[in-house]
């Protein structure tokens, strides 16, 4: 399903070109909009929500033109803003309920939904607490809750993990995955962290300084092996085991890269099919302790670093 189609989209602010003829299509699932701060992510979201008219080009969201049908579109999509400021004095449940109402849910229904959704995001016990007394992680959950409370077809979440510590970040990412998989709501998140996008997204759109770098399904863009890495641990009985492994592999005709003194051996891509067995036997024969044997896979960072800036 095509959720968003973007055609030659440009956005000019005075001298500054925030988006520069960008072209891509967003399909169902979780889509990651990646780029550094200032790459045009928030600008894109505001255009997709119909809050800004693009300078050139066209965009369709859920089959609607945001500039023309903004109000109608915004009853079908939701938004979680980047800034981590919320009405501090308001209890979470009132906040979620009010925004659900504004998005067209009848009052009584909004009340029960607000409470249900806060349970789903793990704030059930906390739902009557004023938002100001909540931790950063809880506030991010409140933002998620208000975005899904009105049962949208698509939500835009601007940097939903900003400012979170690793544990809280994981929890929020899991929730977002859940929103997509279990609740059937499509999600577009923006993030400047490649790692988290790789962790939860089905599709990605990478922007850099307003230009499109890459767009498509994550597993088609990444995952391709760029070589094998073998990490060994020196063993007292076989002090030279790492060198032995290195030599054995070289004798088998493989290119082996190793930094001086390093316990990591790298075999670049294009190695023969029997490679795993060669490595296994070399390690076994040398009596080395194997710590890790892993394919180095192409990731988003490689894609971005590949693009000449």
């Amino acid at each position: 399903m095509e959720l968003i189609t973007v055609n030659e989209l440009s956005m000019q602010f005075g001298q500054h070109r925030a988006l520069d003829s960008v072209d891509f299509t967003v399909h169902s699932g979780v889509t990651g909009l990646v780029g550094a701060n200032g790459a045009g992510k928030t600008t894109f979201m505001s255009i997709a929500l119909g809050l800004r008219a693009p300078t050139i080009g066209s965009i369709k969201v859920l089959g609607l033109e945001p500039v023309v049908d903004g109000a109608k579109l915004r009853s079908l999509v939701s938004y979680g803003p980047e800034r981590n400021i919320l009405p501090d004095e308001m209890p979470a449940v009132d906040f979620v309920k009010h925004l659900a109402e504004v998005r067209g849910i009848p009052r009584k229904e909004a009340k029960t939904r607000a409470s249900d959704i806060l349970w789903l995001v793990g704030l059930g016990e906390e739902r009557f607490r004023p938002i100001g007394t909540m931790s950063t992680g809880q506030r991010q959950r409140v933002k998620l809750a208000q975005a899904i409370a009105a049962d949208p077809q698509l939500v835009f979440l601007d940097e939903p993990t900003d400012g979170l510590d690793p544990l809280a970040r994981d929890e929020v990412l899991t929730l977002i995955r859940q929103i997509s998989e279990e609740y059937g709501i499509h999600v577009m998140i923006s993030s400047h962290l490649l790692e988290e996008v790789e962790q939860i997204c089905d599709n990605i759109v990478i922007l850099n300084a307003g230009k499109l770098v890459a767009a498509g399904q994550l597993d088609k863009l990444t995952g391709e092996s760029t070589g094998l890495e073998i990490e060994l641990v020196t063993v007292d009985e076989h002090p030279n085991s790492i060198e032995d492994v290195e030599r054995a592999l070289q004798q088998a005709g493989l290119i082996v890269q190793r930094e001086p003194e390093s316990a990591i051996l790298r075999i670049p891509e294009g190695a023969p099919e029997l490679l795993p067995d060669l490595v296994r036997d070399a390690v076994a024969d040398a009596g080395a302790r194997l710590k890790r044997l892993e394919h180095r896979r192409r990731n988003l960072e490689d894609i971005i670093l590949d693009v000449p800036s």
Partner: peptide, 20 residues
């Protein structure tokens, strides 16, 4: 770490990846 490779070799089982 010491025995995984010898055991795999002994059983003639491939070790494609070993990831902690």
């Amino acid at each position: 770490g010491r025995s995984i490779a010898p055991i795999a070799k002994e059983l003639n089982v491939s070790l494609n990846e070993v990831v902690p």
